[in-house]
Design a protein around this nucleic acid. Sequence first.
DNA 1: CGTCTGTTTGCACGATATTGCACGAATCAG
DNA 2: CTGATTCGTGCAATATCGTGCAAACAGACG
Lengths: 238, 238
Amino acid sequence: MLTTERKSLLLARLAQTGRLVARDLAAELALSEDTIRRDLRELAAEGHLLRVHGGALPLSPTHRPMAQRQGMQVQAKAQLAQKGAALIRPGQIVILDGGTTHLALVAALPKDLPCTIITHAPGIAAALEPFPKIEVILIGGRLMRHSMVAMGAETTASFARIRADLCFLGVTGVHPETGLTTGDAEEAALKRIMLGQAAEGVVLATEDKLGTSSPWGIAGLNTVRVVTTGDRPVWLGA
Amino acid sequence: MLTTERKSLLLARLAQTGRLVARDLAAELALSEDTIRRDLRELAAEGHLLRVHGGALPLSPTHRPMAQRQGMQVQAKAQLAQKGAALIRPGQIVILDGGTTHLALVAALPKDLPCTIITHAPGIAAALEPFPKIEVILIGGRLMRHSMVAMGAETTASFARIRADLCFLGVTGVHPETGLTTGDAEEAALKRIMLGQAAEGVVLATEDKLGTSSPWGIAGLNTVRVVTTGDRPVWLGA
DNA sequence: CGTCTGTTTGCACGATATTGCACGAATCAG
DNA sequence: CTGATTCGTGCAATATCGTGCAAACAGACG
């Protein structure tokens, strides 16, 4: 197995399972633990994962378990959620990405809003139960653990068959030059497709994302409307 | 389990339940209380929680709603869930239908069971987040509000592409003559397909379902294993 | 073809981290 | 006050880490 190939495998595995254990990987790949540790060290140096004793974990706050993320920036997210919810007009077809901000958006929706919501995040779908007039389309696929959204070929194909009016996209970085970015290549590709299926894209960005950049690009800032907690929408490019 | 991962788990658990008890955590994670206490001490030193005698509490006494829903037949379902969870062997591919009983089954699964779970219920999928070694395949489709599972052509097609070892099916009636039944025709058809894709079918039936019958038939009793709250499995046909 | 160079891998070894246990001190409940 | 529980510390066993080094290997170059 090629070294680069192995590193990719490690990252993919991390995205899928949410953790890597050096000893298990060495046994599975029939390599010494030293080699695995070297890989993990280098991947950590490149900023692709968090090295911990015994293996590695996904990086940074956006990759932490849901329960832990939910407590962060509650009021900022609630405020963003309000603004986001106000963008949805009756009858529209809306693609809703995963993430705690969008979970807050669901909570902020009017109870009798009639529309169609398409999502690949089971948590979002489950939260839509109390809305009698919202039709929910669940997109299937293999569930990524750290982000709790479906991904893979099946997911991509399902989204490709859809046309929507609005697409709420979750990102980890919003930067004037690199545009919208996220921490995983596959994730970035899927988000790009989701965005392409909708007439209009919206990103609800908490302040900590503004001016930051993640490894994988999704699209330029001019392709979406960026909503922040500031008093008026901020177009970073302007 | 990685040390860092365990600490994250503790924080997540604290955010979710509002308190941590050292003794219970040690039992649940199969570790000595010393290790848990050490974790709590370190997390407290890092300013992530408030160490108290016997466990830990959140730093900011903000809110802990603890909206523990009082479902019906909680202990009967928990008992059934235990029995059901025991049927899943490591490495198996399992189809899991929606419903509160199956939600209880998820809660009863061993924390490190390696297997694949296929479900069209977003609630079930979301509940599987804390299980690092379970691969979750989400089946998409149009979400039915009353049962909160995906249904329709897309769902049917997705299930048709799958082969599983085990299929846990939710039903509303278990009767010696009419067999397994449910209240919706489309639902019955989908359940029949799900059952057909698995080598073995299992129905976790609370007592109130036994001997009753709903309008739409799924399959005969002899095609599945019916597990009840009784001490030994009851085959109603016998 | 022979040599050199850079990369990759596995091994050795001392350093560090983690875990469980023992034991006395502190705390809690009645 | 008394018994039981929990706590903190020290210690030993084990696991993991990082570094240095040598062998194997592929490619560059003469």
